[in-house]
Design a protein around this nucleic acid. Structure first.
Lengths: 186, 186
DNA sequence: GTCTATAATAGGATAGAC
DNA sequence: GTCTATCCTATTATAGAC
C-alpha cells in the first residue's frame, strides 16, 4: 500500500511541534513517533538520517513558512505601515499569541546551535534583511533600518523566551500590538 | 581527607558553564564530570539528587550573582543614569561581551522550562522588578517603567539568542552600548 | 571525598516480516 | 509504508573499596 498515513507535510508539522516544545535534545525518537502516530522504523523510512534529518526538514519547513507568511506580508501591496501590521499579525499567528515557543530560538541555545548554525543564520538573516528593506522603503536610512530590523527580530525572540520561561505571554502580546508604529517612529 | 579538590563554589561555577553552553538536556553527567575534573560518583556525593539538583544549585548561584552584580549596580549610589550604566557593564561582564549564552534563557526553552519554571520566574522577576523600581525613581510613571523594564530584559535575552544562533554578538554589543540612554529617553 | 566497577535504563538506529 | 523485534551505545545512577 503506497499510501502513507500522513502526508509528508503533515508529518513534518507534527515533528515541528515536538521539536519546538521539547528542543532538539529534549525530543526523543519515542516522542516523535508518538506525535506522528508512527513506529520509529516508519520515521526512519521517511527520514533515513534520523533525528538530524527530521530537524533539518522541520527547519526548511519553518523557513518556507516564514518566507511566505511573515516576509510575504512585508512584500505585499499597500503602504509600509499596513505591511508591517500584516507582518505582526503573521507573527501572532505563527506563535499562537505567545502561547508557544520558537523552534529557531530553541535550537539557537544549547548543544543544537552548533549543528544547525547555517540554517539558523539563514532564517534570522531572511527576516532581518526583509524587514530592513521594508524600513528603507519608508525612508529610514540604511544603517538605521538594519538596526531597527535586528532589534525587532531580537525582541520577538526575547519576548518568547520570557513567555516560555514564565508562562506569561504579556510581553509578547504588547510587542505585537506596538510592532508597526514602533518600527516607524521618527 | 575532608578537603575537596574544588570548593563547592568553584564546583558550581564549572557546572554552570556546561549547563549554559549545552542546555539542561544537552549536558550529560559525563560532560559535567569532565568539566569539574571529578568522577561521576563524586558529583553524586556532592549532589545526591543528580543533574536536577546540580541545575537547581546553579540556578541559585546565578540568582545570587544577578542580585549582587546586576541588581546591586542599580541599587548603588549616584544618579539613575549612572546606575543604569553600571548595570549595563555588569551584564556585559556576565555574558562576556555576548560571546556566551544565558543559562536562564536556555533553560526557558525546551523540556527544561517546565521543571524549573519557579526558578525562572523568580530570576526574571528579580531583574524586571529592580529595573522598574529604578526607572520610577527617574520619574517614569509606574506602568511605563514596568513596560520598559520588561522590554530591556527581553532585549537582553533576544540579543543573546541571536548571538548564540548566528555566532555574531553585534546586536548584544549595540544593546549594551545604548542601554541607559534608551531606557531613560522621553 | 574520590575512585573503579557495574548496574539499569533510555535513546538512537537497524533488520526483516508483512 | 508500516510493523515487531532487536541491537548497541550513551546515560543516569548506585555499590563498595580506599
Amino acid at each position: 500500500m503506497p499510501t502513507p498515513l500522513l502526508s509528508r507535510e503533515e508529518l513534518i508539522d507534527r515533528l515541528f511541534e515536538v521539536f519546538r516544545d521539547e528542543g532538539f535534545e529534549g525530543a526523543s525518537m519515542a516522542d516523535l513517533a508518538a506525535a506522528t502516530g508512527l513506529g520509529k522504523s516508519s520515521l526512519y523510512h521517511a527520514f533515513p538520517g534520523g533525528k538530524d534529518e527530521m530537524a533539518r526538514a522541520v527547519l526548511a519547513a519553518i523557513r518556507a513558512r516564514i518566507a511566505s507568511g511573515v516576509v510575504g506580508a512585508l512584500q505585499g501591496p499597500g503602504p509600509v505601515a499596513a505591511r508591517l501590521k500584516r507582518m505582526a499579525d503573521a507573527i501572532d499567528v505563527l506563535y499562537e499569541k505567545g502561547t508557544v515557543g520558537c523552534l529557531v530560538g530553541a535550537f539557537s541555545q544549547g548543544k543544537s546551535r552548533r549543528a544547525f548554525r547555517p540554517e539558523l543564520q539563514d532564517i534570522f538573516g531572511l527576516m532581518i534583511d526583509a524587514l530592513a528593506a521594508t524600513l528603507r522603503e519608508a525612508g529610514i536610512a540604511s544603517a538605521e533600518a538594519r538596526r531597527r530590523a535586528e532589534d525587532a527580530v531580537l525582541a520577538i525572540q526575547g519576548s518568547l523566551v520570557l513567555a516560555c520561561g514564565t508562562g506569561d505571554p504579556a510581553a509578547f502580546r504588547r510587542l505585537i500590538k506596538n510592532f508597526a508604529p514602533r518600527l516607524l517612529e521618527p
